[in-house]
Lab assay of single mutants.
Amino acid sequence: MDSLVVLVLCLSCLLLLSLWRQSSGRGKLPPGPTPLPVIGNILQIGIKDISKSLTNLSKVYGPVFTLYFGLKPIVVLHGYEAVKEALIDLGEEFSGRGIFPLAERANRGFGIVFSNGKKWKEIRRFSLMTLRNFGMGKRSIEDRVQEEARCLVEELRKTKASPCDPTFILGCAPCNVICSIIFHKRFDYKDQQFLNLMEKLNENIKILSSPWIQICNNFSPIIDYFPGTHNKLLKNVAFMKSYILEKVKEHQESMDMNNPQDFIDCFLMKMEKEKHNQPSEFTIESLENTAVDLFGAGTETTSTTLRYALLLLLKHPEVTAKVQEEIERVIGRNRSPCMQDRSHMPYTDAVVHEVQRYIDLLPTSLPHAVTCDIKFRNYLIPKGTTILISLTSVLHDNKEFPNPEMFDPHHFLDEGGNFKKSKYFMPFSAGKRICVGEALAGMELFLFLTSILQNFNLKSLVDPKNLDTTPVVNGFASVPPFYQLCFIPV
């Protein structure tokens, strides 16, 4: 009986604490739906499609509103004006990374994606500088992407125009580009180590996009005490870190300090320079996690976009025909596509942009946080508050993009057929937390897609009208449904 009384008292205290925290903070924060004790607004949000729920709530509470995930307040920004004001106009104040408990377990605050403060700034600055020195957006990395595009075309030829699921092959190409940047090595598509790495990356994007992960991140005790797919994700990350550590040891034994070959060499050189400046942010643990982040951000996002792009091109054969006509006119058949071609191919450029806009790969991006107490639109948001960005509300804005739910390359073309930029184009987020590999991803999408369409016609196994382009999961990332196609050599 005594234990029951204690339990009831504990629960009562928890409920009172929950109510007090919510009521004391709500006077400062933007308005929002009334949260339930302990669980907050979790029942009012469709976990399978958070973005749709945010759109519905914005119609009631406006472009800036507050939700509670458990006891934790989260300020939501919906629509271009609110997102721009926060991420661009007040970029420094909104540059923090929001709480992501599962990532905390995986990387302990290291790396480039989930770190904060001085650690994040130094690692991000170093990573950007190193990638630029190796030619991100310049010639040397373009050579690597072109080489991988040629290998991709050869792998597709091996399908002999038979029906195939493109998931694996389209994942190999961007993964190999990242391998060449980090390890100075590309792998054969049949290499077992490479296959294991690909498998872990593919599993992780599916797990991260599941409703279960949303629950884990908002009720963090689940991570330590409950079984579930989150444990598989943590094991996959541990596998990748151990693999990278092996490569780091190989580099330490063979590195030429006067001739760095890749990202690992550059990081080890930085560690050597910083060894007298303790404590340094440049450690082996930081290198492991930064490399894992580059793999995660640079492989599955690009391969998922490529997979979605081919599905949309199957669905819209008239678009595919126009792209192939432009390829034939500008590039021809006797040389590989290059980035200089893009400025002469406005329709193809528009298609690449429209694919990214339409699929809305990361509907709410990753959570941000404010780095200080900030007054925002007459609300006071306390330091450390998590900020949720609705990228969907920007990419699918119906004023900027008429009929935003329709796939239409003319969203990025003017009346004369010239490519038209849009400030609403934010597939990689915006501001200080914009994806480090934005330029690389854009290069890969253009070169891989043009190389495929230069060499193959795409054949659907069903009537294009019957192809479903609805994402199968739409949590962290929008993942396309399973499909097969035939690559018919031109």
Rank of each mutant, 00 (worst) to 15 (best):
5 V>R: 01
6 V>H: 05
7 L>R: 00
7 L>D: 00
29 L>V: 04
34 T>G: 05
37 P>L: 04
38 V>F: 14
39 I>P: 01
41 N>T: 07
47 I>A: 11
50 I>N: 06
50 I>W: 07
52 K>V: 10
60 V>R: 14
62 G>T: 00
63 P>Y: 02
63 P>Q: 07
65 F>T: 05
65 F>P: 00
67 L>G: 01
68 Y>F: 10
68 Y>M: 07
68 Y>N: 06
79 G>R: 00
88 I>M: 14
90 L>I: 04
91 G>F: 07
91 G>T: 08
92 E>H: 08
93 E>T: 09
101 P>A: 10
106 A>S: 08
106 A>R: 09
108 R>N: 09
109 G>C: 14
109 G>S: 12
111 G>Q: 05
118 K>M: 08
118 K>S: 11
127 S>I: 15
137 G>P: 08
149 A>L: 01
150 R>H: 07
153 V>H: 00
154 E>D: 13
157 R>P: 01
165 D>E: 03
165 D>S: 04
175 C>T: 11
176 N>V: 00
178 I>Q: 02
180 S>V: 04
186 R>D: 01
187 F>V: 03
188 D>Q: 09
190 K>N: 15
191 D>L: 00
193 Q>D: 09
206 K>C: 10
209 S>E: 10
212 W>K: 07
213 I>W: 08
217 N>G: 12
218 N>V: 13
219 F>T: 05
221 P>V: 07
222 I>Q: 03
228 G>I: 05
229 T>N: 15
230 H>L: 08
231 N>R: 13
232 K>Q: 13
236 N>G: 03
239 F>G: 11
251 H>M: 03
258 N>P: 06
262 D>G: 12
262 D>E: 02
263 F>K: 03
264 I>P: 04
268 L>D: 05
277 N>M: 06
281 E>W: 07
285 E>L: 06
285 E>W: 04
286 S>I: 08
294 L>G: 00
306 L>G: 00
306 L>Y: 00
307 R>P: 02
309 A>Q: 01
311 L>H: 02
314 L>S: 04
315 K>R: 07
316 H>T: 03
320 T>R: 14
321 A>I: 13
326 E>T: 01
329 R>L: 11
339 M>F: 08
340 Q>N: 10
341 D>G: 00
352 V>W: 03
356 Q>G: 04
357 R>N: 01
357 R>A: 01
358 Y>L: 08
362 L>G: 04
370 V>I: 08
371 T>Y: 04
377 R>A: 05
378 N>K: 07
383 K>H: 06
384 G>D: 11
390 S>K: 05
391 L>F: 06
391 L>S: 14
395 L>S: 11
398 N>R: 11
401 F>E: 03
409 P>F: 01
412 F>P: 00
415 E>G: 11
419 F>Q: 02
421 K>I: 12
424 Y>I: 06
427 P>I: 03
428 F>I: 06
429 S>G: 15
437 G>L: 15
438 E>F: 06
440 L>C: 02
441 A>K: 03
443 M>S: 08
445 L>S: 05
448 F>M: 05
450 T>S: 12
454 Q>V: 03
456 F>H: 01
456 F>R: 00
456 F>E: 00
457 N>A: 07
466 N>K: 15
467 L>F: 04
475 G>D: 05
478 S>F: 06
489 P>Q: 02
